[in-house]
């Protein structure tokens, strides 16, 4: 009887995790796609040079964006099962994908006036690593150099 109560409790958590996790994920993806379109006009590269323009650089600034996203109970269980058999852990794919895109977006939102962001780097921290009762969360930091350029007309007259 004890095992049965445990099972019911467990299934409830699983269902709650699945339903709310799915809703949250859908909502997040909608927001990500919309904002990505909005911020598409700031060219972002992983290189050290400003590309695509001959305008002079006015000033530069470090831009950062970070996010911590946790995975729902259902996906955590699914990942645990996948761990037994091996292969792609699909339930975590959306988690890391969302976290990285969100971090980059937040970085862009921190410097809305920038003309370009160069030398983009992504770093993951781990709050819960080594913790036995692990919280399945991912922490991403996106950072890069926001470049502000002189307008095209002044570029011609600048030394």
């Amino acid at each position: 009887m004890d095992a049965l109560i445990q099972l019911i409790f467990f299934l409830t958590l699983l269902t709650l995790g699945y339903v709310f996790g799915k809703i949250a994920e859908k909502k997040h993806y909608r927001s990500i796609i919309e904002r990505e379109k909005q911020w598409m006009q700031i060219p972002t590269t992983s290189g050290r040079r400003v590309l695509g323009t001959d305008r002079e650089v006015k000033r530069v600034q470090l831009a950062t964006g970070s996010v911590v996203i946790s995975v729902d109970y259902f996906k955590r269980i699914l990942a645990g099962l996948r761990n037994i058999f091996g292969g792609n852990v699909q339930s975590y794919e959306t988690l890391v994908d969302r976290a990285r895109r969100e971090a980059v977006l937040r970085m862009k939102e921190s410097c809305p006036q920038a003309d370009q962001i160069i030398n983009l780097r992504l770093e993951t921290a781990s709050i819960s690593k080594g913790n036995k009762n692990q919280i399945g969360s991912v922490e991403v930091l996106a950072y890069g150099t926001a470049v502000y350029l002189y307008p095209a007309s002044t570029a011609a007259t600048s030394p």
């Binding site: 060219p43 292969g87 792609n88 890391v96 990285r100 983009l120």
Partner: peptide
């Protein structure tokens, strides 16, 4: 140039 592209995987062994 088009901006940053990325690829990610989470993979486990049996």
């Amino acid at each position: 140039f088009y901006g940053v592209v990325s690829g990610s995987t989470v993979r486990a062994k049996h």
